[in-house]
Amino acid sequence: MSAVVTGVGMAVEGLADPDDLLHPLTGDDSGFDPKVALTGRGMRHKDRASRLALVAAADALTDAGLLTDGTYAGCGDRTAVVVSTNFGNLDSVCSFADTIAGEGVVGLSPLGLPHTSSNSVAGWVAIEHHLRGPNLTVCNGASSGLDALFWAQLMIEAGRADATVVVGVEPGTGAVARLLDGARSLDGAAAVVVESVPHRRARGAAPRAVIADFRRGTPTSATARPVGLRMDPDGGVDLAGRFGECSGALGVLQCVAGVGYLDAGGAGDVLATAGRDPATSMLLTLPGRAS
């Protein structure tokens, strides 16, 4: 396996680090506060999904040791971005349709143009850190987050990038609430840095986890180690049960939780399945000598 996870990040209200995904919050106030973190100059003219994604991506890059004083320390030409989101720009689409029905196109803001396309989040993340490698947006339903990690890994293995920032994000907007008939849903983002082994070694970054298996159609088989952390609706840690529908953010959030578990010395492998699409699953393991 030639790719490893070297950093994780989040933007979920009240949560400070990956461990918070696995345990009840302790009540301190060091966690992410969207009212503060999603404002400021760099956040202007961006939709909610993009702002959440920017926070999570910066958090993961920092964790991976790839941000120095806010500047990307890797090679931008060799760094890819993969974003998973299903509802990211629905608020823009719906509000623009309302404006057109009311005032016509003269009522629209020209600044809304990027958000008509479903890939605007990935564009903003690339611009923020000057990441000029392949830039992919996966909008693939319930399995989207795990799919994004799979494609990020394939980009590394195919030699298209040395590092990939993977972001899963869903905004808690009015359009999403109506689409889900008022069911609870995540308003947040998770991010993971996937890196080639030679690149990780060259800069001396610690390997945190290996994506050991990804399956569509059949459940992941166990490796030599037993599964120590299971994340699916039927057993173990159920992130959707805690945060509501996580949709395109789920798989990336599961990966962050899994890395938190392994970081803390958790025994066994980590198995995540894709919520309403249980046929898609991913196995995370502790990095071995080859990683």
Binding site: N86, A97, T116, C139, N140, A175, L179
Partner: peptide
């Protein structure tokens, strides 16, 4: 590959002209 997925279906649903299933936003089903 797509720019807009089934966002036209989202608009028709939002404006009250049709129903939508969140899983039909993409093309897998």
């Amino acid at each position: 590959g797509t720019t807009l997925r089934e966002q036209r279906s989202v608009e028709l649903w939002w404006r009250g002209d049709s129903d939508i299933d969140q899983d039909r936003l993409h093309f897998g089903p």
